[in-house]
Structures are given as structure tokens and as C-alpha cells.
Amino acid sequence: MELLIGQMFAGLSLGSVLLLAALGLSLTFGQMGVINMAHGELMMAGAYTAFVVQRSISDAGVSLLVSIPVGFLVGGLLGLVLEGLLLRRMYHRPLDTLLVTFGVALILQQAARDIFGAPSVDVRAPAWLQGNMELLGAPIPLTRLFILLLSLVCLAGLVLILRATPLGRRIRAVVLNRDLAETSGISSRRTDQLTFFIGSGLAGVAGVAVTLIGSTGPYLGTNYIVDAFLVVVAGGLGQIKGAVIAAFALGVLQSVFEFSTTASIGKVLILVLVVVFLQLRPQGIFSLKTRSLA
């Protein structure tokens, strides 16, 4: 029983990490169609932001709370630069975007190595997040609980922006039909920038969060990029609710598989499952019906 609850929570927690990593991507890839291979490196930038902030604010608790908005800004601004310098020249050329952003990912990794050194750095978790709380005898790690909450807050924020703000309305309009949106006076250029800013910013927040569970090094992003794409594709392009369901489903399933087999086999089973699922339902869990011609 104790183990069961522990495992249930492990699955939810893994799902929340996947969701955080994939949320930004579901905006930039899902809504805008940009295959951003550097998304993981934007996470890495967020993680190093947490490290830098912690160097100037020694209280780990305060620095974590400060890091989250700062990480959002750093990720977002990097994303803006990337979009402005490169990506806007290659919308509608997905393959070029893939190669270019892969190159950018390598450049960012090397930059991190040059600035912070090759060894991973230590970002301390605040005292109030160390340890665990008991739930029916099973230890629930507080850091995991924090990440779960953070992912839900980010999700709520994103949904709120998309549903209830003029910006969200413009983003949805551009996704549905770019030409028609422009005809009705929406600057699609500006909307693209803002969408990319938010998506990249969310990657930064995800980066700050994962410093609590893993190592902070130049290759941090590579651990998450594949899973993040998996979530977005399985969930259905442009579908936030699809991404949410896919993230938690993959998280729970991976924990179950890993528990009953091994970590490596569990990973294989997940990939097989996703491939089979996409054969049956290539559009993902939910599909977006657009009026665009592309």
C-alpha cells in the first residue's frame, strides 16, 4: 500500500515534470509549428539562472522564488532573440528550422560550458523543501510536490492568457487562420513574437524547477527535449489539454512500466506505446481543426 501510493505519486510527479517541459513547447511547436530543438537549452538557461540568482541571494528559499520569474524572463528573452534573428526567416520551412535550432542548441551548450565550466553546478534546495511529508505511510518528497504545484500554476496561467486576454484571442486567431487574422487587423508578427516569448519563458521556468531534482549542467536540456516533443505530439498539436493528458498519462505509465520491469525497458515500452498510438491516431489525443490551408 505504502509502495503503491509512493509509485502513484512518482507517476504524477514525473507527469508534472513532463508537463512543465512540454508546456512551452506546446505553444511554440503546437501553436506556431516551429520545431525548436533548442527548447531544452532554454530550460538549461533557466536552470543556470537559478544558479546565478542563488549566488547573489544566499537564502535558498528566497532565491528559488525570485528565480522563477527571472528564469521566465531569461528564457523568454533568449527565445525572442532566437525568433527575431533566425526563426522568423524560416516559418513554413520546418526542416530548416529543425537544423538551425539544433545548431543553436549546440552553441548554447558550449556557451554554458564556457561560462560556467563543464562540471555541473549545485543549486541548493531551500530548507522548507527538503524532506518529505507522509501520506498514509508513503513519503511524498516536498520538492516533487512543489514542482507539481508549479506546473499546475503555469498551466492555469497559460490557459488564462489564451482564454481570457486579448493576446490569447490574437494567438488563437493567428493559429486558426493567419491570413484572415491579419486582414482583421492583427499583427501576426507581433503575435508570433509574444507567443514565442511566453513559450520560451515557460521553458525557463521548467529549467528552474528541475534544478530541484537533477543536476544543473550544460546538457540538462538534452534529458528533456525528446520527452517534451513526445508529450506534444501524443497530445495533439496545438492542444494544451491534450498535452496535459499526455504528460500525466506518460508519467504514470512510465512509473508503472519502470516498476514492473526496469528503467530502460520502461522507457522502451513508452516509446513503443507512443508509436502504436500515433499509428492509430496520428493527430494525437485531440486534433485542432483549423481553417488554414497549410
Binding site: G6, V17, A263
Partner: peptide
């Protein structure tokens, strides 16, 4: 006897098994 893929950062399940 548990193995994690090289570079893996997800140890919830393994740690649960170890603890149990």
C-alpha cells in the same frame, strides 16, 4: 538490481524500490 539509462534524471521509481 536496477539500472537507469545513462544520463537519466528520473529516480523516483528506483528510489521507491530501494526504500521498500
Amino acid at each position: 538490481e536496477e539500472y537507469a539509462p545513462l544520463g537519466s534524471t528520473e529516480f523516483s521509481t528506483i528510489v521507491n524500490k530501494v526504500r521498500d
